[in-house]
């Protein structure tokens, strides 16, 4: 009686299964690699799709895509105030970086804004129309202009060029939210946080 390990049939079985699993692993790896390759091709696009697209330039770049390009080559991810915490969180997941607070040098997190033209004072100079990155201002020369509120990104680029200062940034009504995490984590009786 030969030991089991010397048995030819047993050796073939073990060897075959090992080889088979190796082949499976390689096939799996190749499939994963192809998927990754497809993802990889558009790194800048993927970063850009996370940025809020307000085109405000507060990050120090002329628009969202240039900033995305800079991030792809190693710039910090916390320079986008309109994106706020949400954008930082998603970028940190994508780029495997730490979740850091927003860089205060580039502005504070603000609630969403919308530009409103005081129409009585507008002189119809069309300067704001030229400045608007998303064509959200309509009007013609020497006629009153107005902002399409639903398209306005609140980027404040139209404020500066206006010669008569008739554009205001007004806070948008915040999204209706019934459940608040902060309220949940507080003691209903004492009002103190339940955890540290």
């Amino acid at each position: 009686m030969t030991p089991l390990a010397e048995n030819l049939f047993f050796q073939l079985l073990v060897g075959g299964s090992l080889l088979g699993s190796l082949l499976c692993a390689i096939a799996w790896g190749v499939a994963g690699l192809r998927k990754r390759l497809q993802e990889q091709r558009f790194l800048v696009d993927r970063i850009n799709s996370i940025l809020p697209q307000t085109q405000c330039g507060r990050c120090g770049h002329p628009g969202c895509r240039p900033y995305a390009r800079a991030i792809a080559t190693g710039e910090a991810i916390n320079r986008c105030p309109p994106g706020g915490d949400r954008a930082i969180r998603r970028l940190s997941l994508l780029l495997n970086e730490a979740r850091v607070p927003l860089d205060p040098a580039h502005g504070e997190i603000e609630s969403a804004k919308v530009a409103v033209i005081r129409e009585a004072e507008c002189i119809g100079c069309t300067k704001c129309i030229v400045a608007c990155p998303v064509d959200a201002i309509i009007g013609a020369a020497k006629h009153m202009h107005t902002v399409i509120a639903s398209e306005c990104t609140g980027c404040d680029l139209c404020i500066e060029p206006c010669p008569v200062d008739c554009i205001d940034l007004v806070e948008r009504a915040p999204a209706f939210r019934y459940w608040s995490l902060a309220a949940l984590a507080t003691d209903p009786l004492s009002g103190e946080p339940c955890h540290d």
């Binding site: 990754r36 390759l37 990889q40 790194l43």
Partner: peptide
């Protein structure tokens, strides 16, 4: 060269 995202991460 091949995996810019992977490179950016690791």
């Amino acid at each position: 060269k091949l995996f810019p995202l992977l490179a950016r991460r690791h």
